[in-house]
Design a protein around this nucleic acid. Structure first.
Lengths: 218, 218
DNA sequence: CTGCCGCCCGACCGATCGGTCGGAGGGAAC
DNA sequence: GTTCCCTCCGACCGATCGGTCGGGCGGCAG
């Protein structure tokens, strides 16, 4: 524990992130992680007390990177629409630079694992970071709606749509590439996704003069 | 095999769908499925040759229900915007009525399983159904753009956003409920999600007078 | 030098994994 | 009755699972 930069520990987190992203917690064994990290299986348990703890550590690292991207944007002294644009750019940059991030985030957002996050200290940290990010974005959008900069809608619903538009796209892998007819992560594809997403939310949330509601029925 | 309505087979598919939706292919054992279906483990292998085949059968059933909802809508003699609205209603109805569907679909769309779908006949059927649904929606949107009914954008990117807005929302489970501050599947919440989604795509894709293009290339 | 400590490993543990096998039970055909 | 087939099951298989244990190795303090 004397060496904070323990390179083995980082290596484990790195390869585990890639593996868990692809096949999930249950789909990846400790032996597979150890082999990918160039270590014996026993060595993993020297750095992480259990498989659950390793998985949660990976998840926390992913969420930490997202949180670091979000905080400076929320602190900017600009309008909500501008913040939203910058946030879309920032999160897409992160998802494109770290290809495992999107799938890990998606798993964290929808999967029901066989363990309870609340029972582990690392799990509570994960929950806290996730809540912080979601609340930050929701508040940012809600403020933009309240002061008339954005069309009035349900902020949580917009956040759900935003998550889908960003995270799911970069998690969709082969299916997404089949749909687009090309790679997801090329510089051009990333640029295009940013533009499409920003344009869509721009139009979808643009403030409008009061009008009779259009196209709403069950 | 003489009984097409084999109730045991349906029961297995039903409970397996719920279990796989929650914890994925690797996270659910055959014993757990058997117990939930009220059968011995050996009996599962009488109805399905292997675990992979069972999983693919579940997936195909889910995709089949979606495809059945989509086809009559594509055949309607109405505009693309109207078709899009009806499709949003239909798919959200399906996701709300069958709570396991969203998560199974999401898994099919982003997960890399430890088997290759191409090696099993059922896997090829899954791939075919998935491709049919995606192509149907993409074409519907592309046509609406080509004839000026919808704003010009990248149809595949819109489809990705549409998937995120519908499937992810109903797959998000506890996180989504925390964000909304209430249940995801109540009649009121479902109605609200339909309205929000339709409004968002309405505004996001509304045809506009020619203008200096924003976020369109290639 | 000796002793300690962080890091790593091979061998091993009980449990569970997917899957097989031989046979029990029961309804329909004869 | 007998035979056949469909459905189901308990017992069993080798492999792999997460996790433990004791010890080897190398650097650093005394």
């Amino acid at each position: 524990m004397s060496d904070v930069n323990s390179s083995s520990r980082d290596k484990i987190l790195e390869v585990a992130e890639a593996l868990y992203a692809r096949r999930g917690f249950a789909g990846v064994g400790m032996r597979e992680v150890a082999d990918a990290a160039g270590l014996g299986k026993s060595s993993l348990f020297h750095h992480f007390r259990s498989k659950v703890q390793l998985y949660l550590a990976v998840l926390e690292r992913v969420l930490g990177r997202i949180e670091e991207r979000l905080q400076p944007i929320l602190a900017l002294q600009v309008g909500a629409a501008e913040k939203l644009d910058r946030w879309i750019d920032a999160v897409i940059d992160e998802l494109a630079e770290q290809p495992a991030t999107a799938r890990m985030l998606l798993r964290a957002l929808f999967e029901e694992e066989e363990f309870e996050t609340g029972n582990w200290p690392e799990g509570q940290a994960v929950d806290r970071r996730l809540a912080a990010v979601l609340e930050g974005i929701t508040r940012m959008i809600a403020i933009g709606m309240r002061n008339g900069e954005l069309r009035t809608a349900s902020a949580p619903h917009v956040v759900q749509t935003l998550i889908g538009a960003t995270i799911f796209h970069f998690a969709s892998g082969e299916i997404g590439e089949g749909l687009l007819g090309g790679p997801l992560l090329s510089a051009e594809a990333v640029r295009e996704r940013k533009a499409e997403t920003k344009a869509f939310f721009h139009y979808g949330l643009a403030a409008r003069p009061a009008q009779s509601g259009e196209g709403e029925k069950s």
